[in-house]
Amino acid sequence: MIELLANRYAYLLLFVLLGIGMYMMIANENLVKKLIGVSLFQTAIFLFFIAMAYVEGGAAPIVPNEGSEVASPLPQVIVLTAIVVGIALTAVGLALIIRIYSEYGTLREDTLREVRADE
């Protein structure tokens, strides 16, 4: 078991990041902390794609060598696209959080529900 974890440390880190991100999204009442949790969760998914695509001794697919295994560039392209989408999601989320704070004066989800119920 310890040898498996030593060889697959990326998966251990992946599950730690997934757990922390999920906990932050569920347990925190602050909207900024929820957005940080979403960002950590996204980072864990990126790490998952990279770890799954790793080929031991793999060559670049541009000019493959005879007899060597070629690494697929598709997961890298997907992760790069997902990073751009993640940055856009974070920017829109922060803009919404700023707008919510200027309108209601709080970032706590329970307080926002009470204020919205009174309106």
Rank of each mutant, 00 (worst) to 15 (best):
A117C: 03
M52Y: 09
T111F: 15
K33V: 12
E3N: 11
L13R: 06
M1C: 06
L31Y: 06
S68W: 09
L4M: 12
K33Y: 11
A95C: 01
E109L: 14
G105M: 04
F49V: 08
I78F: 01
Y104L: 09
I20C: 00
G86M: 12
A53K: 03
E29D: 14
E56S: 03
L89V: 08
A117K: 10
F41H: 03
A6S: 13
Y9N: 12
L14E: 08
A27P: 02
R113E: 15
G58A: 05
A60E: 13
T111V: 13
N30K: 04
T43E: 09
I78H: 01
L13D: 01
M24E: 06
V79R: 05
G37F: 04
V16E: 02
Y101S: 10
E109G: 08
Y104F: 14
T111I: 10
L96I: 12
I20H: 00
M24F: 03
M25H: 04
I62V: 13
L5T: 05
G105D: 09
P61Y: 02
V115S: 14
S39H: 02
I98L: 10
S68R: 11
G105W: 00
L12K: 04
V55K: 04
R8S: 09
T81I: 08
T106K: 04
A117N: 11
G57W: 06
